[in-house]
């Protein structure tokens, strides 16, 4: 059972991250707001309760590695790194600005805490697999987490990596799927045969667990199960696109729409009230 105080802390962190990212979106007139809000609770959980940090100095790399494969959710990662004290206010302010600091999709040269450059879907899991296998071969402890969108797993490269991973015995690799059931122009469950995702991963030889991607206790349980797995593991996170802002939740248009000043104020009020 997760301590209530810890849950409260994570909720507060998630609220701050949401407000930071909405402010970034407002100032930059950036798209992908819904896609970013969808993964905030997962990132808050990982960065404030899960990922093993190498300790001092503060800029040293994580022992665990996190790959944001759905690179269009970059705002959520930037805001989380900022909340963690690993990305400056100046960096956040320069997001998607002319002569700015951070692009809409990840470029690892912008921060030592960004593990891979990403933006094209289906690249993260193969890289995560290589990284996990390489770390294991070198005897370097730590787990590799790869966060993918649900639409992203339509990419064949994901299943190429899925088929290979169990053969390599990478028990240090965890795939996380942000299953918000909304992709660029439709619902994955309507576009594809998208049912029984956990069984699909299990059939490929992975340990698969379903969790609520907005419930820290549920995530805690799921990750505990994956850590016991003898091979690679997948956590299918049931999430809501646009989570935390009533008028954005489960709305396709929030893959694209921009946040106005009025919307930002309303969203912030809601988030603070919900916190």
């Amino acid at each position: 059972m997760m301590q209530l105080r810890l849950q409260q802390t994570l909720r507060e962190r998630a609220a701050n991250i949401r407000i930071t990212l909405l402010d970034m979106a407002r100032r930059s007139k950036s798209a992908h707001v819904g896609s970013s809000l969808s993964i905030v609770d997962i990132l808050a959980y990982l960065y404030f309760n899960k990922l093993m940090f190498d300790g001092e100095p503060a800029d040293s790399p994580f022992k665990d590695r996190f790959i944001l494969s759905k690179g269009h959710g970059a705002m959520a990662l930037y805001a989380t790194l900022h909340e963690k004290g690993l990305l400056s206010k100046e960096a956040i302010d320069g997001y998607m600005q002319d002569k700015g600091t951070l692009p809409a999709h990840l470029d690892k040269l912008t921060s030592s805490h960004i593990e891979v450059s990403a933006g094209s879907l289906g690249h993260g899991l193969p890289m995560g697999l290589g990284l996990a296998h390489g770390l294991k071969k070198k005897g370097i402890p730590g787990r590799v987490y790869v966060l993918m969108g649900d639409g992203e797993i339509q990419e064949g490269s994901v299943w190429e990596a899925a088929m290979m991973a169990p053969a390599l015995g990478v028990d240090n690799l965890t795939a996380i799927i942000d299953f918000n059931n909304l992709q660029g122009y439709g619902r994955p469950t309507e576009i594809m045969h998208f049912h029984n995702l956990d069984e699909k991963w299990e059939a490929f030889g992975w340990k698969a667990v379903i969790a609520d991607g907005h419930d820290f206790q549920s995530m805690e349980k799921a990750f505990a199960l994956t850590e016991k797995a003898e091979g690679p593991s997948a956590v299918i996170m049931k999430t809501t696109k646009g989570k935390g802002v009533s008028f954005m939740e489960d709305e396709l248009k929030w893959h694209y729409f921009i946040v106005t000043d009025e919307m930002f104020e309303q969203a912030r009020t809601e988030i603070l009230a919900g916190d």
Binding site: V116, L125, P126, L129, G130, G156, S157, A161
Partner: peptide, 15 residues
């Protein structure tokens, strides 16, 4: 599975 092989190679290089 060439897409995976190439990404995997990148990951091994990262390690």
């Amino acid at each position: 599975a060439e897409a995976n092989a190439t990404g995997y190679a990148a990951g091994m290089a990262m390690a």
